[in-house]
Simulated assay, not measured.
Amino acid sequence: MVEGALPPPPGVIPNFDHPKKTVWIANIVTQALCLSIVGVLMALRVHVRASVTRNWGKDDWLCIVGWILSVGYSATALTMGHFGGGINQWEVPKSQIESFGKTVYVTMVLYGPCAFFIKTSILIFLTRVFAPYQRAVMGIYIFIGFMLGYYLPVIVIKAMICRPVEVFWDADIKGQCFNQRALILADSCISVLSDLIIFALPLPLASDLHMPLKKKLRVAAVFSAGGLACVASVIRLVDIVHNGTSPNQTLIFMRVNLWGIAEVNIGLICACLPVLPAFYRYHFAKTLNRTGYTGYNSTDRSIEMMDSAHRKRNNVTMKNIPDFGSDENVLIGDKVQQGSLETSVHGNSEPQGHGNRRPSMDDQQMIMKTVEVHQTFT
């Protein structure tokens, strides 16, 4: 006769052959969506940064590490479901509860570094895009330092949550443990706070950009899509507060875990969204009139990018041309329209129409790029 891992409530008869699997099914669907959708977006991000914009940075390495950890997080959740996660504990065979406890331990350890690397990747990207705002950049680095100061010791505490560690999943072994619910609750509170900060941070920065209101709203929407991550982290926190002490842990913990997985994968999606415009413009945009970007190949002429530090002759300086090597230009610098290119020959960098006029404050504050090109006609 099969013995359940928890005595059933009064009047409930366990069904080990056909248990209720609502959360169990939700786990399968969630992991399938996260692994497939986020996997594709990460592949696009790597392609754009490595082959299109060619401005690979620290945020890309951080994002890749966060994605690898999220894959491990999802794989552990699927393993957890195999050992009864998402099913009422009184309908989970007692023989499986120890293996379930091991998967809980792994997810506890994985969640912190996974969330940290993803959030840090987004923040580092913000420092690149909004580099002229030095105070904001300094504030972002301070915030990253605070997150590191929290996550680093908490990861160590979680890894050593019991002495010996086996006590965590085997109640028959004597030992001592930290309060598991308190650690998860602290994680949830920090996640809600950090998600809210990352969600709100781009809004005032985007409002100061010198561009039409429609484009400001577009930029703010791209960066603030993390509001969905805030929703997931808040629901996770509420679930822990209301149900964290329930003995039905195979069901409750899986539900809490799903909200954590949703949070980190939404973060990865937000980290990949800003590179998608460059992917579209490089592969699908055809004319300058449609996109404001010039093509790389032409039957009439070829444009060879030159390094201004080494090339001094036969060059044409073209201002305000968006380049794929700059995040701010790819995302927010769509300023060129057909017929509005400003050019000067032989390295003269003075824009047309300005003469000797002293630059205004608007001119000084705008994010500008000067690209030198060499034209060869065939």
Rank of each mutant, 00 (worst) to 15 (best):
G260Y: 03
P277H: 07
V40N: 05
C34Y: 06
P204D: 02
L69S: 04
S349F: 08
K216L: 06
S224P: 01
D187M: 02
C63H: 09
K21S: 11
G347L: 07
Q176F: 09
H210K: 13
A159V: 00
S246A: 12
E328T: 09
A278C: 10
N15W: 08
A200Y: 02
A171P: 02
S344D: 08
G11W: 10
F125W: 10
V373T: 09
P204H: 04
F117N: 07
Q338W: 13
Y293P: 02
P9M: 11
I266D: 07
A220M: 09
V137Y: 00
F143L: 11
I25D: 14
F16I: 07
M254G: 10
I252D: 11
T376R: 14
W90R: 07
Q89F: 04
H310F: 11
N248F: 08
N356R: 12
H18A: 15
S194Q: 01
V371C: 10
S308D: 10
S233L: 06
V154A: 09
V12T: 13
I155Q: 02
Q364H: 09
T291P: 00
R49V: 05
M366P: 00
E342C: 06
T53I: 05
I235D: 04
L276D: 01
I190H: 09
K312T: 11
P93N: 08
V92P: 06
A225E: 00
S207L: 04
V52E: 08
D172Y: 04
N329K: 05
P132W: 03
K335L: 09
I266S: 05
S51K: 15
I184H: 06
R301F: 15
M306R: 14
M254N: 15
V256K: 03
N320F: 07
V256W: 03
D300C: 06
Y296M: 11
G85K: 07
F117D: 03
I124R: 03
L251V: 04
V167S: 02
G244D: 02
L213Q: 14
I25G: 00
V71K: 06
I122Q: 03
F168A: 07
Y296V: 09
V154E: 06
I190V: 15
I173Y: 06
L288N: 08
L41R: 06
T127F: 03
M108Q: 14
P359V: 04
G139T: 06
R357V: 05
P19Y: 10
L273Y: 04
D300Y: 12
L213F: 12
V165R: 11
R54D: 02
G227F: 10
V264P: 05
S326W: 08
Y111I: 04
